[in-house]
Design a protein around this nucleic acid. Sequence first.
DNA 1: AGCAATTTAGTTGCACACGATTAATCCAAT
DNA 2: ATTGGATTAATCGTGTGCAACTAAATTGCT
Lengths: 154, 154
Amino acid sequence: MSNTTPRRLDDQLCFAFYSASKKFNHFYQDALKPFHLTYPQYITLLALWETSPMTVRELGSHLNLDSGTLTPLLKRLEKQGWISRKRSDQDERQVNVAVTPYALEKRDEVYARVNNCIDLMSFDGVDYQTLLAQIHQVMGELDTISTQDLIQEA
Amino acid sequence: MSNTTPRRLDDQLCFAFYSASKKFNHFYQDALKPFHLTYPQYITLLALWETSPMTVRELGSHLNLDSGTLTPLLKRLEKQGWISRKRSDQDERQVNVAVTPYALEKRDEVYARVNNCIDLMSFDGVDYQTLLAQIHQVMGELDTISTQDLIQEA
DNA sequence: AGCAATTTAGTTGCACACGATTAATCCAAT
DNA sequence: ATTGGATTAATCGTGTGCAACTAAATTGCT
């Protein structure tokens, strides 16, 4: 109850992630412009190029997105011909999402475009693995904080 | 044109920022629940607690947000009594955004709540300054890539 | 078998985020 | 003094992101 100084550093850490995420999003938006894909749509396709078909739930647990986000996103991808959605015969609650032949045909082109754009960057002073590990550690820490902990002092 | 392998590592870096940003957002959403503030609203107030008044443009350049995002956000903050919006007399194009007495009164309480929630985390294995520096370096690299570079090979 | 609890995807409502456009205002150069 | 260009905030349209809820289907328990 005594600490009334803004945590500049911690705020900066969150703000850094917030800003970096937006910048990356913008970067991919430009890189993927030839395909009319957004970053969330791109990572959805990435997951499906690796494993297809997947149910909406499986996709969601890979991408950390719920059906409220995925359903409209998948409808847009379907409309543009990248994926198909079909209710499972075995369990009619599930919807199987699969890449289309068009998506398979375009896959290498998308990979090449993204790789070429990434090549424009030079991560010289960046220790890639350490950075990734630290981010994961921060995320792990965020996961350990339960909503309960936060609520109890509200 | 030859590299058709997905850049798992780079995708992972972007995805790590993307995921961490969402987790942080959720963390602050919970922490700020007693005040009915979102994270973007909170950083807007942080900026204004430091400098008030500011024009929408000045706020936007601090937070990297444009008027399309800020105008509705500021209207919500105004409606809830945190800020005031008044068109400048000197230059009627500008709108001066200022914290209200209510916001000043609540400031320390918000700081304390955020600090208490951050205290729940332990950034043990994390070298805070190095992490921040690396994130800034990545952001700097993203800034150097101009849209032109990305467009030319589209 | 029958029914309650669970699971799944979809829907709704709200809040960003941003590109593109618009309207009002200011400024600068004639 | 006018006017053309620049600046500023607001607006519009699209696309997430998520909490809360709904409807349908499945599972589990007796």
